[in-house]
Design a protein around this nucleic acid. Sequence first.
DNA 1: CTATTTCATACTGATTTAGTAGGAATTATA
DNA 2: TATAATTCCTACTAAATCAGTATGAAATAG
Lengths: 145, 145
Amino acid sequence: MKLSTKGEYGLRAIIDIAENSKNGEYVSISDISTRQKISDRYLEKIIAKLKKSGLVKSSRGVNGGYILGKDPKCINMFDILSVLEDNIDVTECMDIHVFEKCNNHYTCKARKLWVKINEAVENVLKNTTLLDMIKQEIKKGEEIE
Amino acid sequence: MKLSTKGEYGLRAIIDIAENSKNGEYVSISDISTRQKISDRYLEKIIAKLKKSGLVKSSRGVNGGYILGKDPKCINMFDILSVLEDNIDVTECMDIHVFEKCNNHYTCKARKLWVKINEAVENVLKNTTLLDMIKQEIKKGEEIE
DNA sequence: CTATTTCATACTGATTTAGTAGGAATTATA
DNA sequence: TATAATTCCTACTAAATCAGTATGAAATAG
Ligand code: FES
Ligand code: FES
């Protein structure tokens, strides 16, 4: 039940972009990779997916890099992770294309749980925006730290 | 973000046991494997985990097999899946033992999402009992099928 | 022109997954 | 007591996936 590093690194990367292109500056892979301590070659490949989906836009050449493709409050976690992860469902049999795999799709009791888990996860993902992730939460009593 | 077959098969197996040992009869691996269409050798290994954790009890020899170790309403999905899956958290860094892995555990913005997902999944798992899974739901309008 | 950057494609070692295999121990029943 | 049915225990393995490398072309600012 684990996310791949693509999902993990990719989310960290887009958060990094959101935080570091505040003045319209492009954020380069090398910057992200040093800040996030992730292999730059690997990051390239991961960010390519974000690019392809339109979640980020790019500029080549000197001072190039990436910026968000949309307003951070219009990007939610489901958008991001479904691009990064090959599939986001808990089991194969949740995928309509492989529904024959199960011995008895329609009566299978286990299926009820997969549905519930999927719903719960999707609910979190769709209701959490990129803005939610980057905004500072001011909580009382935390000044001490 | 996918469950392993251990989790999938294991849950189907314990549901099968719950449904087929109604009169105190032990349910054998070969019965489960033919009903569920899962390799019996593989099932052996999976059910061994359930046995070890006390979720099922076994009897060797002729007419042997497995029965539930507890009342199905006292077994929840978290109990079952945490025994079957090596880890149930969405990312490594949710594991306290590997918290150094993250570049900055305390300020990492991505972490907020991992926490939310984990909470949502745990909530479903802990609030769904084995009894919930096996009981027939009578819904109006389904007699037609 | 040159340095810097993304973009595209192919390759690879390590790890994990999903099983298999062989046989010992236990038990009901005839 | 012999036998068949069952769990139990440990080791092995082929295939797939993961995580990352490698190479170099294309674009662009200065
Ligand atoms: S529907 Fe896939 S496990 Fe049953
Ligand atoms: S705490 Fe693990 S990704 Fe940040």
